[in-house]
Design a protein around this nucleic acid. Structure first.
Lengths: 188, 188, 188, 188
DNA sequence: TATGAATGAGCTTTCATTCAT
DNA sequence: TATGAATGAAAGCTCATTCAT
């Protein structure tokens, strides 16, 4: 792994666990065993580091996500919806991705970070809307754009509460109730 | 209004719109027309200001919330649940409370702020759980602790997406779908 | 004890243990259970508090010292000199006076404090010179002003090292050697 | 001279003449023509600057001191003792070293500074004890550890009074009386 | 006498950023 | 690429002092 990657790796960990504002470039350098000059050689400034880190993180998450689409080939709508839900819940419980999600919620909720990443956030939201669209538009009882917004929001809320709660959050049971609820709502 | 209140008012606005870390004491002082010494006379340090601001905000929100309980006297479970939902959605759309909610999500998602306010956050979560408990335990098909966690989480997610999204977020339609969904799930 | 005395008592203890510059008026107030307004009502400013504290401390020490002069009536020069030495060594080992001495050495060695108390320090030095003069001028082999300066300095040095050293400083043995030395030098 | 040395040089002068607590980093920077950032780049904090300054000063003093040991080769005990005393008195009267001694007494007498430098002070005291030991243990009438403590203390006291007294302090005469006294005491 | 709110200057320290090497 | 010395602005905080009550 080259030094630039080392720096980004250290940055993502520190941003997620301490927050972007609370993380100094000096800390990133120490954690990555890299000099300050190196960081400012590869990244225009701290905001640029944030953006590149965010992009890299989104890539990693979507690499994982692309498997679902592949495995959904030839299944019924109901099965594909359940598959998608299962994938999402598995992914948020994956310890390797926990950091990414924590980081993500910080970005969403901190006005100053939102500003820096606005375009990237919007782009990703469109992607998520699209991935629900292909399923929901096949279900006559679905209320397409509204249900997609709602789904995204609710999953966000569950992930947020799960990530920042203690050990005993009943994620598995919530998942079951959540899926039941949608199957009922959509008459599947 | 005395100067301490002025300072807290300014702080709440700046914390919500810019974020806690990005808001300097100097900015708070300027906005409140107050000296730096004054702030550190009334608040042990910046963290203490954050805590007092959070407590004050929670008081204001719960003052608003207490009306619901009163107006729920003598109604059916279904009506009370709907009332509660309506109240929550109204409250999150209230421009006067928007700041409070924005601030709230920052606190929840920023590890460093969570640490400072951990006890207060836990306390408030218990209160929310309790307010759903009194209704859900009367519904045989409800899955008490799990459905409460899920409700809180989903509402969180909707509020979060609504607050930080643009103007055209379909909150009213989501509210309808959301209520329908729960009436179905709970067989009401 | 009135509040002014309370404040001075607290000040002397804090000045001695922490140093004058490191002691804030707020700390003095808290230790004395007194308000800041009160302190600035009785003392023009912090320097004035220092001066009044120094004067009070000098009074206490000299009250103790005056006993020696009284008990020296009718004794031989040698006995009077030994008495004086004994008194000085007893006094520096007195735990009740330890604070005063510690404070004293700070004052002597810190240029900024010296400046504030210059006149009081000079005055006290003259008094000490005088108390040795009455004895030394009776001893033909003594070298009056020089031996007085040397005596004062050496005692200063011993007190300083004793006060700031650990528990096992051999003060008693040093006292014996010290007295022997002077009896030899002065041919007594 | 590099900027770090400039900063230390300025610090030593200001600490000695104004006192450590009364000297701000800003003052050091101005005197050294250096930025505040530079100081905190090279020194962890103000206490660390104090420690490094103290170490540097001790080095300079001991460089001067090491000449004595060399020139003492092959002399009698009496001559070596006198040489040592002469060296000490010369050194405390040396205007170039005055600052170091003034600084030294502040450190010794200010509890907060002592705390920071405790280990370094202890170490240096052991060194001084050792340098007297090699001479005193050769003199049968000397009372080794006690006389060393006493010598160190007395010299301390004389230096302290000389340094902070006015111009007309009779240092030369005190030196003569001091040496006589010890030759008598030790029967040399 | 006594209180404590209020001030403003100044302190130590942090930090993103630049630049010579 | 890579380093780390150097900068300067700004941060959080302390503190002596004043003043209305």
């Amino acid at each position: 792994m080259d030094k630039k990657q080392q720096a980004m790796q250290a940055a993502i960990e520190l941003f997620a666990t301490q927050g972007y504002e609370k993380t100094s470039i000096a800390q990133v350098c120490e954690a990555a065993n890299v000099s300050k000059g190196l960081v400012f050689h590869h990244f225009k400034n701290k905001d640029d580091l944030l953006r590149q880190v965010f992009v890299r993180m989104a890539e990693i998450i979507s690499e994982v996500g692309s498997n679902v689409d592949a495995s959904n080939q030839g299944l019924s709508v109901k099965e594909r919806l359940i598959n998608l839900f299962e994938h999402i819940f598995v992914s948020m419980a994956d310890p390797k991705q926990k950091l990414f999600y924590q980081f993500d919620y910080q970005v969403k909720c901190q006005p100053s970070m939102r500003l820096i990443l606005q375009d990237l956030l919007d782009e990703r939201y469109q992607l998520m809307m699209a991935s629900f669209e292909v399923i929901l538009t096949e279900i006559p009882t679905a209320n397409y754009p509204v249900d997609s917004h709602m789904l995204i929001a609710e999953i966000d809320g569950i992930a947020l509460n799960y990530l920042f709660a203690g050990e005993d959050y009943p994620l598995a049971q919530i998942k079951q109730r959540f899926i039941n609820k949608y199957l009922l709502l959509l008459g599947l």
